[in-house]
Simulated assay, not measured.
Amino acid sequence: MSNRELDAAGITDPDLRAAYAASKAINASHGRTYFLATRLLPIADRPAVHALYGFARVADDIVDGTLPKSEQTMELLALQRTMWDGDQPVLRALADTVRRYRIDRQLFTDFLSSMRMDLHVKQYETYAELAEYVYGSASVIGLQMLPVLGTVSPRKEAEPYAAALGEAFQLTNFLRDVGEDLDRGRVYLPMDELAAFGVDRDRLRWARRTGRHDPYVRRALAHMVARTLAIYRRAEPGIEMLRPWSRPCVSTAARLYRGILDEIVAADYEVLNRRAVVPTGQRLMVALPAATKAAGQNARAWALRLTSRPRSPRSASIGVPGSDSSAVKSHRRISLGE
């Protein structure tokens, strides 16, 4: 992590600086879309975002590891017991970020609860069942981010939109990775809705194995893409509730991730044997104008920080909004994006 980011955030302790640097390295390595969007945030807010991503990735890597399920469960439980102790760099950065931004700790407990579900739940019979998993694995990510992004209206009003955007990101992951997840024995699409289109696990396996176009699978996926697009539309008003200098970041992430659905449609829903990816050129076309806009907004944010009334050391050190209404909150399981 650059010294400029850490200096701007008021992070001076050498151990903490190293901890945040470790989290940033994880984000840069695994969170391609998310890392790109993070670069559009004010420089003082970026370390907190790296810390949140780093923690989520640590948990996800436990679940995707090769240890027996019983040992993975024990590792997740140990992570939950020790995540505020700061006994490893990523956890030190997380604890500091949660303290600085006053993020609700229950959100991290809910996240780890969904991670444990991945160790024993291989499919979800209804969308209501899937929604419970999605809340803990994705919606809480949006809620964790909200205090960092800041809002221009009471934070409670923005929370449903932040949760919906996390849900949309996660459902996009499921649609993009359906073939890979099937190889791992998991199906993250509601089984009753698949059945309504004449699709079951065996049919998905057949399409995956043969590579043949299946009109039944296509119709089922088209239905689920349409629903996910509707959730993006439902989440969109929340972007205007954010601080102006946070909007380019979130808007860019939403456009890039929604672009994955466009690629799925363009491929005629052939996702079982190919991974829908937004081309690099298109990613740059979305990101570069946003970067220009963000530069102006970030300059304004910095000017306001310099001219605002003094705050308590804890808030002033990282530019935390003075109140909820201040104008100044993996892989497939991590809705942060890749």
Rank of each mutant, 00 (worst) to 15 (best):
Q80P: 09
R81Y: 12
R81I: 05
T82C: 08
T82V: 10
T82A: 12
M83W: 06
M83N: 00
W84S: 14
D85C: 12
D85R: 03
G86Q: 09
D87P: 04
Q88Y: 11
Q88D: 07
V90Q: 03
L91W: 04
R92E: 02
R92T: 10
R92F: 00
R92K: 15
A95G: 06
A95I: 02
A95S: 08
D96S: 01
T97D: 07
T97E: 03
T97C: 12
V98N: 07
R99N: 02
R100N: 08
Y101C: 11
Y101R: 15
R105T: 13
Q106S: 05
L107H: 02
L107T: 07
F108D: 04
T109M: 02
T109E: 08
D110L: 11
F111D: 08
L112C: 04
L112S: 10
S114K: 12
S114R: 11
M115P: 15
M115L: 07
R116P: 02
M117C: 11
M117L: 11
D118A: 04
D118L: 03
L119R: 05
L119W: 05
V121K: 14
Q123V: 09
Y124S: 04
E125H: 08
T126N: 03
T126L: 05
Y127A: 12
Y127S: 06
Y127E: 12
E129I: 11
E129A: 08
E129S: 07
L130G: 04
A131F: 09
A131R: 05
A131W: 08
E132W: 09
E132V: 15
Y133D: 10
Y133N: 12
Y133R: 08
V134G: 04
G136L: 07
S137K: 07
S137G: 04
A138L: 07
A138Y: 10
S139K: 13
S139A: 14
V140Y: 13
I141R: 01
I141L: 06
I141K: 08
L143Q: 01
M145S: 14
M145C: 15
L146I: 12
L146P: 14
L146D: 07
P147H: 02
P147Q: 03
P147C: 07
